[in-house]
């Protein structure tokens, strides 16, 4: 059996869902162990065990929460040299990218990044990655050992396997922390009532909303539906809404039951992050907008007029 490691991601003590998604895939690929570093790692190990990790390497050292990349890369490097895994899975997330990049450079092995799937192939592993922003999919054979693959969130569905993990406490190899970037403050910006990553319905806005002053229309619809509010890169770059709301290649990948795109044209950059949605509803003035060609229900019309009416209709239906 191949030895597959999952680099779990903790955010201030909470296991991030990407870790469970990776474990679900890892179970198909071999014997699974996980690495949990930082505050809450021991509690995390129990959850990781339920999702299929047989053993979890754990350190609760505060440096993992406070410093970017350096302490985790050094610690995992030491583990790799002892444990010789065949494959290490990371999330293609901001925090894991920092660690995986440093680790690959230390080990001198390269990696495959931005993957959408991983499979066993010819005694090794293959990964599929988007080309041209998602228009094509390339299958890459991963040639190094360990194979390091970073997978986009929401590529796999998390599922519990019902096991328990043994915990192995490890010595952190933190390295020279004076040569690491330190997180000195955390600011919560998006007053998200419903998290984009966890929402079953998402209402997302683009340039067609015509200005930040119209985003409250989307918030009102989202409130009525119990949905989260997202945005296209164009309006985030323009400073209308914070980055935390961005859906797409350089933002979040989402997979809700329903995705309502209001005034979003559907550039590849955006659709790669939401085309896994079960149902897509699109409202766009431009009948030629690419988003209308992938929507289950497309409406050629003005989002500014339709969204408030829809909010009222939903409220009336729900009897609010």
């Amino acid at each position: 059996m191949a030895k597959v490691w999952v680099a779990a991601e903790l955010n201030q003590g909470k296991v991030q869902s990407i870790s469970f998604e990776l474990l679900a895939k890892a179970r198909e690929l071999g014997d699974v162990e996980a690495i949990a570093l930082g505050k809450g790692a021991e509690a995390a190990a129990a959850e990781l065990g339920k999702h299929g990790a047989k053993k979890v390497y754990v350190s609760e050292d505060a440096a993992f929460d406070d410093y970017i990349g350096v302490p985790a890369a050094g610690t995992i490097e030491a583990l790799v040299k002892q444990g010789a895994p065949d494959l290490i899975l990371f999330g293609f997330t901001y925090d894991s990218r920092e660690v995986a990049g440093r680790l690959a450079a230390r080990l001198g092995v390269g990696q495959v990044s931005n993957a959408m799937d991983v499979s066993a192939e010819g005694g090794g592993f293959a990964a599929s990655v988007p080309y041209f922003g998602g228009a094509k999919v390339a299958t890459l054979k991963v040639l190094n050992k360990p194979a390091i693959v970073l997978v986009r969130p929401k590529s796999f569905e998390a599922s519990e396997a019902g096991g328990t993990a043994t915990i192995e406490k490890i010595e952190p190899q933190k390295g020279d922390l004076s040569r690491a970037a330190k997180i000195v403050d955390r600011v919560v910006e998006a007053g998200e009532k419903v998290k984009l990553e966890e929402a079953t319905i998402i209402v997302s806005g683009g340039r067609g909303m015509q200005g930040p002053e119209n985003f409250p229309l989307l918030e009102q619809l989202a409130d009525a539906l119990g949905a989260a509010v997202g945005a296209s890169r164009a309006v985030v770059d323009a400073g209308w809404v914070p980055y935390a709301m961005q859906v797409g290649q350089t933002g979040k990948s989402v997979r809700p039951t329903v995705y309502i795109a209001a005034g979003i044209s559907g550039a590849m950059q955006h659709t790669v992050g939401m085309k896994g949605s079960k149902f897509i509803v699109a409202i766009n003035k431009d009948a030629e907008a690419p988003i209308l060609k992938m929507a289950d229900l497309g409406v050629v019309g003005d989002a500014l007029k339709i969204v408030p009416k829809l909010t009222d209709a939903v409220k009336a239906k729900k009897g609010k």
Binding site: V137, A138, L292, G298
Partner: peptide
Amino acid sequence: VADAETRKAGEVIED
């Protein structure tokens, strides 16, 4: 390299 799976267009209506 293969073409990515594309979603089929559903119904498109005029408002």
